[in-house]
């Protein structure tokens, strides 16, 4: 397990459709043996990027290599090296779980005996042994997802790609998926996944790239990104809507020593502070001094949400319904 070697290299990747740019000038590196997450709202370009990497979509310009092999000119070699777990709907309702795997076994030309043995192991791994011979339309969402993962693992890939692996799953199935993914990483597999769940990116991924409007805003481990923001967050909800009072309060707070930044919004203030134990009492004092009514106060450690807002200028949910990504995404 060479921990520092590059598994995937993407340089200046662009994908444009007739009148729409899905991905513009995107570059990134994925290290061997890490869980790399592409985080962004729907329509941000993460699925497009993923599709280019799995060779089912050709980039307009730029290049990407998987373990040194170009995804366009050496697509066939790349396909031998990767496994792909699409979103849950990509299952044939009329085939049983085992039949899905047998079909893929033939498509990867696994020797028959090896395929049968491997399929049994995989079914056991994802805990589907008891349901392997039922048609997939009787499966629950979580079971379909398990089958998807088994399908992605069948070729024993070097790199596994997962597209929104926990979309629409219940909590337990979600935790199971996370658990599988971590185990695979621990066995040395490189994993690339897309997600629009902040908590998933935070807890599961070793490194993430935040994608918005087809571009990468920042890349790093969730920890680094959060630490990079500097300081903890305190949100004040103000009962007094008078802008003059608000402005006076901001002025007062700015004078305090442990304040890093202040952002005003409709309901109050978002403040980043260095030493919360000193900042909190000082903030209380400032509000009462100015005569501002305080309706609520919330203190939190830096969150990925804050990272997202800082680098994209909006929260991840803002656009989720404004773009129809069905056909283009």
């Amino acid at each position: 397990m060479a921990s520092s070697s590059v598994a995937i290299e993407v340089i200046g990747l662009c994908k444009t459709y007739d009148n729409f740019t899905a991905v513009k000038d995107l570059s990134l590196n994925v290290q061997s043996g890490e869980i790399f997450g592409l985080l962004g709202p729907n329509g941000a370009g993460k699925s497009t990027t993923l599709r280019i990497l799995i060779t089912t979509l050709k980039p307009t310009s730029g290049r990407a290599t998987i373990l040194g092999h170009d995804v366009v000119t050496e697509a066939d070699t790349v396909r031998q090296l990767i496994g792909y777990v699409p979103q849950e709907r990509a299952i044939d309702r009329f085939l049983t779980g085992r039949e899905h795997l047998l079909l893929l076994g033939d498509l990867y030309h696994l020797p028959k005996e090896e395929a049968v043995k491997r399929i049994q192991e995989l079914l056991k791994l994802v805990d589907l042994e008891d349901h392997a011979d039922r048609v997939a339309k009787t499966y629950s969402g979580g079971m379909k997802r398990k089958l998807d993962i088994a399908c992605g693992l069948l070729p024993n890939p070097k790199i596994l790609f997962l597209d929104e692996p926990t979309l629409g799953l219940d909590v337990q199935s979600r935790l199971n998926v996370w658990d599988y993914v971590r185990r695979l990483r621990d066995q040395g597999m490189t994993i690339v996944m897309t997600t629009n769940y902040l908590d998933e990116a935070d807890q599961l991924c070793d490194r993430i790239a935040i994608i918005d409007e087809g571009q990468i805003r920042i890349t790093g481990s969730p920890k680094e990104l959060k630490a990079g923001l500097g300081g903890d967050g305190i949100s004040l909800t103000l009962g007094d809507a008078d802008p003059a009072v608000c402005a006076r309060l901001v002025e007062e707070i700015e004078k305090l020593p442990f304040i890093r930044s202040i952002r005003t919004h409709g309901q109050g203030l978002d403040i980043r502070v260095d030493a919360p134990e000193k900042a909190l009492p000082a903030l209380f004092e400032a509000t009462s001094q100015v005569g501002c009514r305080l309706d609520g106060i919330e203190y939190h450690r830096p969150r990925l949400d804050d990272v997202f807002v800082t680098y994209t200028g909006h929260s991840i949910d803002d656009q989720s319904t404004s773009l129809t990504s069905d056909t283009a995404g």
Binding site: T56, D76, P86, Q87, R89, I91, L107, Y108, C151, P155
Partner: peptide
Amino acid sequence: ENGFLERLMATPI
């Protein structure tokens, strides 16, 4: 439409 084709196309067939 449901992505099965994409799954097939990601295999080395």
